[in-house]
Design a protein around this nucleic acid. Structure first.
Lengths: 217, 217
DNA sequence: AAATAATTTGACTAATTGGTCAGTTTTGAG
DNA sequence: CTCAAAACTGACCAATTAGTCAAATTATTT
């Protein structure tokens, strides 16, 4: 058997019908974790398979037994990431209070930055370097979801429930302010010094104030 | 003469007293521009001297005649960048109206993102990847300046001139929202589509509203 | 027009890179 | 236990990388 091993961790079977063994599940997850660590730190071109296989605790040929190429490994990480990254925005609902819905979204994004900083940096690296391996996802699923939620925010805006603001740029400001706490963590460490430990708590409080006041109709 | 050529473009003389020729001035500036282009797109480890020398229109050994190593070239770019990057914050003054001072700072940062997106991405790449070649600048000059201006904002806050907010996180929010327009430009392009052309204008308007309302006492 | 200094180049090196492959070892179903 | 499939390995390869160097070319000075 020389075919590439399935990468999605579903119920015992790969999309192509092949069985997924215990070892496959363990090793692919080890590799993906190691790859996330290294890609997020050095970017695609800066990361090496040797680093990743070292980090994962196996040999390079063994790594290539599970993922056919560096590119395939990177692509798999981005695919998994995209799902997690869109979730918080999907949850924004036209029920509840508009300003609270928006602030809740901001808080969920901030939690992502806190809990998954490597994923955030992986994404940032990819975007900054021109998104060569993710651009279709941006103009596809991402744009569709943003269009939908921007329309919702625009309705709130027109109905006078929130201030009259450009909904797209509101979403961008939530992305940027929250992701900043993952992507620019080193800079925060240098500047905040003794107040570094409480940065996420303080950020939630500050951003809550900023958006709540800033969006008041 | 085999010594390294001076890199600072001052009045005809290098710090070591050597004369700077016309060719030196031209070539170093060509190289720095090319290096900025390539480093900002691929990060330090992803960039190659071959790419940079190609972009600059000269041979690799010729490039290494002007800059002793890849590291030295990158460091020179970061040094030049740091000055430009701190300027807007330095200009924030305790004269003028507090909220306008803060919004003016935000606008100046947004202009930097618009006029110098490559510099912004160079900086972002360096920070995301752990700032291995700039960390002393962060905890030195940057921290000092931020501490000073945060104290100014804190005074405004205590005096009731602006809302009671954490001054550090206010500064972070200005950094993140403005730099986002340079660093995540590809993502904006994918999402905004036909509204892409006016993104900076729209951003200035949105961020003006957000910060003006959000900081009202 | 020499003479000197500055600039440029091609050919090179040693190290690192992503990826291959034939063969060995381990695993787990019957 | 048996044996086929799965997992793993060391040795290898071609391409790319940062950096060197002696020699050639060009600019500048006198």
């Amino acid at each position: 058997m020389n075919q590439q091993i399935a990468k999605t961790a579903n119920s015992g079977r790969a999309p192509n019908g092949k069985k997924i063994t215990r070892i496959q599940k363990e090793k692919t997850s080890q590799i993906l974790d190691a790859a996330l660590e290294v890609f997020s730190k050095f970017g695609y071109r800066g990361a090496t398979l040797d680093q990743i296989s070292d980090q994962a605790g196996l040999s390079k040929p063994n790594l290539l037994y599970y993922f056919s190429s560096k590119e395939a490994l990177h692509k798999e990480l981005l695919d998994q990431l995209m799902v997690k990254w869109l979730e918080p925005l999907e949850e924004m609902s036209d029920q509840g209070d508009p300003i609270e819905e928006i602030c809740d979204y901001m808080c969920r994004k901030l939690e992502l930055a806190q809990d998954f900083p490597r994923e955030s940096r992986l994404f940032a690296n990819e975007i900054i370097q021109g998104a060569p391996r993710i651009s279709t996802r941006l103009s596809g699923p991402l744009k569709d979801l943003v269009d939908e939620k921007a329309a919702l925010i625009a309705r709130w805006s027109r109905a006078g429930k929130i201030a009259r603001v450009d909904p797209y740029h509101l979403i961008f400001s939530i992305w940027s302010t929250t992701q900043h706490y993952a992507d620019f963590d080193v800079q925060l460490g240098a500047v905040l010094d003794e107040n570094y430990a409480s940065r996420f708590e303080d950020a939630a409080k500050f951003l809550g104030t900023l958006f709540r006041n800033g969006l008041k109709p």
